[in-house]
Nucleic acid binder design. Structure first.
Length: 914
RNA sequence: GGGCGCAUAACUCAGCGGUAGAGUGCCACCUUCACACGGUGGAAGUCGUAGGUUCGAAUCCUGCUGCGCCCA
């Protein structure tokens, strides 16, 4: 006996149970296969969430899309692996623990590096990885047995190997460069970790006197405080105003320390100086500005650092020593004004760099860092996409990717943090040389053999380790069977915000390292198989209902878990899927989710109806064996119209859904399933099938059983079709349908409906469409005559072909509440509805509201006439007839012929109204 | 400054060369024995603007207006 279901669907009552079931039964685990499977597996990596993070809508969209695809592939019979893990997130995690320490009044330096790292691990055990727990609750069908953390031993080995190899290949170097310095975190950050913001600033015009006293030059700057580090002033070589100044020396104001002499700096010519900007003369501070740094290199200028790691002036003996950069700015401007050297101050909007993590204004700083020489890696990464080995959806992102890749800068990979993969380089105290080693600690300096060596204190950028994941999670640098089977992964689903951070770097590192690894059969690997994934699907942003970006400061952040608890996971997933049109941001609206909760309830109640009828059938001695469900599928040609129709529609929908999913058109797939389930199945098929489910004494039990069988089989298949989108409710109902004894442990392990061509029946679909049209027209006519809902009325109908409705009679009577259906040759009077296929009239004593009827008919007539005019214009156009495709011309001809009849009928109806 | 998008029904969005679509909302009627998280019927759009290409443009091209994103 099918289970008793509650009257309304309550997601909360079943979701936790199934979420736990899927994890506990280890349904989605994929052990390393014994051998390479014949068909390519479907492999997908979860973009590892930050270990400090909590689930937001972006994650949920990302995971919903991945889960739909993963479940779909799995149900299509592919070996399907979705691999989860977490990112150690250097700065973010270190900040969490530093905050914790601050609560105890301590700094990380107080506890020391080793103890600090120990605390980070403790923190991670207690609070880390919340997102993965939330994913379990949301039913993500990942392989939990393969869960990784980027600081795991095996992944750390891979990181070290990658570093050493790149170093040995000459692709990692250490050098003194200007980097983006975060003065709060006191570490370098990469270009990508800096966001630019427009701020109101000032442009200061400052006079620098010539050393020989013969005059002066006025420079313009937004950062007067850095003048203490100036080592030149630059003018454009073509700037006529300054020709006389070329090569002269200036006396740098305020540069005398302890009353000493002021420094002298040269005027250099450099085309970077823009004559249009400010005064056309710029100060050059090589140690505190990236552009000035470049000028400095071109002109061989000294690099004078004047700030410490906290962005305070560091000039012992000077009155500015120890001042914060902004305090120093004020004092310097004041002093310049006192010396009458401040010529002008103008308002000036400028873009400043902010550290993404701490929010600090980034200070360009000269320091020694580790870099990856990126061009050789970028070349391969560009080629991989150019040659089509990686496909982007939407395609336009390939453009963005090329744009960035072709203007790439060397990658600063060192971070002055404690939490992360420590750089495997040792400095020799004896000879000063560097030893780079795979070993935990090399015994001695590779250069001079001295044992006095110490490891570099920096750690690697977190993205350096996550960039290796597609290889390292499968065992790289070892040549494993997992790598043979699962690499390259099939697809990457992610947001555009990490296109450069992560996607591009995975492509660069994957192509670089995997080219060195032979194929499973020993052949040399080419770029085609060195890529980390074959396709990239990039989704858009989830915004709030007013299309505003969600942000904590605005307070418009929608917590997915809250929404899930309110409406159910399936409804939220369906909302995201139905709105996930490639390339378009999603304005998440609860109203929409409400609608999809109703959809879940609709399905639930369809199941109740079906189960109820099964019970009635059983009382009448009719039972449908579950074993025959799949075989009995496909009604014979004598089956009633609705049976042949619903099966055709199911196959039609399955074909379209499969195609939509293969092209990542989630919204289309979701809408197709929705329309089939609610529109075709519930609104029409269920209503009609009620007529057949008669299990009383004298009924035709064979026909009733056949109807019940088709009903069950269609519903079962529809559940499977919906399952990737709504895994919870479909799992529950599928088990219920099989009385708790299903053919597989989960609907997720059953097969996805595939279209059978034999089941497609366009003739019956068209026949049914006419029938639906007829019913809708009768219903509309009834409304107009204000026939009470319950009352059955006689109807007259004239059709163009045969006048025997046969099978359809009963359906019309039931669905349109018709008492008798009289076929007539001619219809006269009022209340007539016409289509090209039929005219129909509801016979009801109430006279029509003449005015309303006239309005409706007049409006309709105008519509027809407008359409007819259009059609005639086209058909009179020789260009159209000559150039338009035949099926379009035929379509218009046919429609024009219909319109003639419709217009005539409508006119006659209007006449008869008087 | 360079690059990339978007403007379609009250709202949120599909459609992207061949007669304007969906969900929600709105109006009216219906507590019909699966479902009021329901049923039935209905109203609602000169597809931002001005040109161009085409037999034909919401759909392709150009200018304009207004938003948005990325990179300097």
């Amino acid at each position: 006996m099918p289970q008793d279901l509650e009257k309304a669907y309550d997601p909360g009552a079943i979701e936790d149970r199934w979420a736990a079931y899927w994890v506990n039964e280890r349904l989605f685990e994929v052990p390393s296969p014994e051998s390479v499977p014949e068909r390519d597996p479907f492999t997908i990596l979860l973009p590892p969430p930050n270990v400090t993070g909590r689930l937001h809508m972006g994650h949920m969209l990302n995971q919903t899309e991945m889960d739909i695809l993963t479940r779909w592939h799995r149900m299509c019979g592919d070996t399907t692996l979705w691999l989860p893990g977490t990112d150690h997130a250097g700065i973010a995690t270190q900040m969490m623990v530093e905050r914790q320490l601050a609560g105890e009044g301590k700094k990380r330096q107080d506890v020391g590096r080793e103890a600090f790292i120990e605390r980070v691990w403790q923190w991670k055990e207690h609070y880390g990885g919340a997102i993965l727990g939330q994913m379990k609750r949301l039913g993500a069908s990942v392989d939990w047995s393969r869960e990784y953390f980027t600081m795991d031993e095996n992944l750390s080995v891979a990181v070290r190997e990658a570093f050493v190899r790149l170093y040995e290949q000459g692709l990692i170097y250490r050098g003194k460069y200007i980097v983006n310095w975060d003065p709060i975190q006191q570490t370098a950050v990469s270009d990508l970790e800096v966001t630019h913001e427009e701020r109101a600033g000032k442009l200061y015009h400052i006079r620098y006197p010539l050393a020989d006293g013969s005059g002066s030059i006025v420079i313009a700057t937004t950062r007067p405080e850095t003048m203490l580090g100036d080592t030149a002033v630059a003018v454009n070589p073509d700037d006529a105003r300054y020709l006389a100044f070329h090569g002269k020396l200036l006396r740098l104001p305020l540069s005398g320390v302890n009353g000493g002499a002021e420094r002298e700096i040269p005027i250099v010519t450099d085309s970077w100086a823009n004559p249009e900007f400010g005064t056309g003369a710029v100060k050059v501070t090589p140690a505190h500005d990236p552009n000035d740094f470049a000028i400095g290199v071109r002109h061989n200028l000294p690099q004078l650092s004047i700030m410490d790691e906290a962005a305070r002036i560091e000039l012992p003996g000077s009155p500015y020593h120890g001042l914060d950069r902004y305090a120093a700015r004020e004092k310097i401007v004041e002093d310049l004004r006192a010396l009458d050297l401040l010529v002008d101050v103008k308002d000036h909007a400028m873009a400043i760099g902010l550290s993404q993590r701490s929010g600090a204004v980034v200070e360009p700083r000269l320091s020694t860092q580790w870099f990856v020489k990126i061009q050789p890696l970028a070349d391969k990464a560009i080629a991989a996409v150019e040659q089509g080995h990686i496909k982007f959806t939407p395609e336009q992102y390939a453009k963005t990717y090329f744009e960035w890749m072709r203007n790439i800068h060397d990658w600063c990979i060192s971070r002055q943090l404690w939490w992360g993969h420590r750089i495997p380089a040792w400095h020799c105290e004896a000879c000063g040389q560097i030893t780079v080693s795979r070993a935990d600690k090399p015994a001695s300096c590779a250069e001079c053999g001295s044992a006095a060596i110490h490891q570099d204190t920096d750690v690697l950028d977190t993205w350096f380790s996550s960039g290796l994941l597609p290889c390292s999670v499968f065992g790289w640098p070892k040549h494993t069977r997992d790598l043979d089977i699962f690499y390259p992964t099939s697809l990457l689903v992610t947001g555009f915000d990490i296109l450069f951070f992560w996607v591009a770097r995975m492509i660069m590192l994957g192509c670089h390292f995997m080219l060195e690894m032979p194929m499973a059969n020993g052949d040399k690997r080419t770029l085609k198989d060195a890529v980390p994934f074959r396709e990239v699907y990039i989704h858009a942003l989830v915004r709030d209902a007013d299309r505003q970006k969600m942000s904590k400061t605005k307070g418009n952040v929608i917590d997915p878990i809250e929404i899930v608890e309110k409406y159910g996971t399936d409804a939220v997933r369906f909302t995201l899927a139905a709105m996930a049109s490639p390339g378009t941001d999603i304005a998440f609206s609860e109203a929409r989710t409400e609608g999809y909760r109703a959809f879940a309830n609709k399905i639930w109640n369809a199941a109740r109806f079906i189960f109820m009828n099964e019970e009635r059938a059983a009382l009448g001695g009719v039972e449908v064996s579950r074993n025959t469900l799949i075989d009995s599928f496909g009604p014979d040609e004598n089956a009633p119209i609705e049976a042949r129709w619903i099966v055709s529609r199911l196959n039609h929908t399955a074909a379209d859904v499969n195609e939509a999913l293969s092209e990542y058109r989630f919204h289309e797939a979701a809408n197709l399933v929705y329309q089939f389930f609610w529109g075709d199945f519930c609104d029409w098929y269920l209503e009609i099938v009620k007529l057949r489910l008669d299990f009383t004494e004298n009924a035709d039990k064979r026909a009733a059983k056949a109807a019940l069988t088709t009903l069950l089989a269609t519903f079962e298949a529809a559940l499977r079709m919906l399952s990737p989108f709504m895994p919870f409710i479909t799992e529950e109902l599928w088990h219920a349908l099989y009385n708790g004894n299903p053919p597989a442990k989960s609907i997720a392990l059953s097969r996805y409906p595939q279209p059978f061509d034999e089941a497609l029946d366009l003739a019956v679909e068209s026949e049914m469409a006419t029938l639906q049209d007829l019913i809708v027209n009768i219903r509309a006519a009834r409304k107009e005559l204000e026939v009470p809902e319950r009352e059955s009325v006689p109807v007259r109908v004239r059709t163009t072909h045969d006048n025997s409705f046969g099978d359809a009679l009963l359906i019309i009577q039931r669905l349109a509440r018709v008492s008798t259906l009289d076929p007539v040759e001619n219809i006269e009077g009022s209340g007539i509805r016409s289509t090209p296929a039929f005219d129909v009239q509801v016979v009801y004593e109430r006279t029509v509201d003449v005015a309303a009827e006239r309005e409706r008919l007049t409006k309709e007539l105008a519509q027809f006439e407008k359409e007819q005019a259009n059609a005639q214009r086209q058909l009179a156009n020789e260009g159209f007839l000559a150039k338009a495709p035949a099926h379009i011309v035929d379509g218009i001809r046919k429609r024009a012929a219909e319109l003639v009849i419709l217009i005539e009928k409508t006119r006659r109806s209007l006449d008869q109204l008087g």
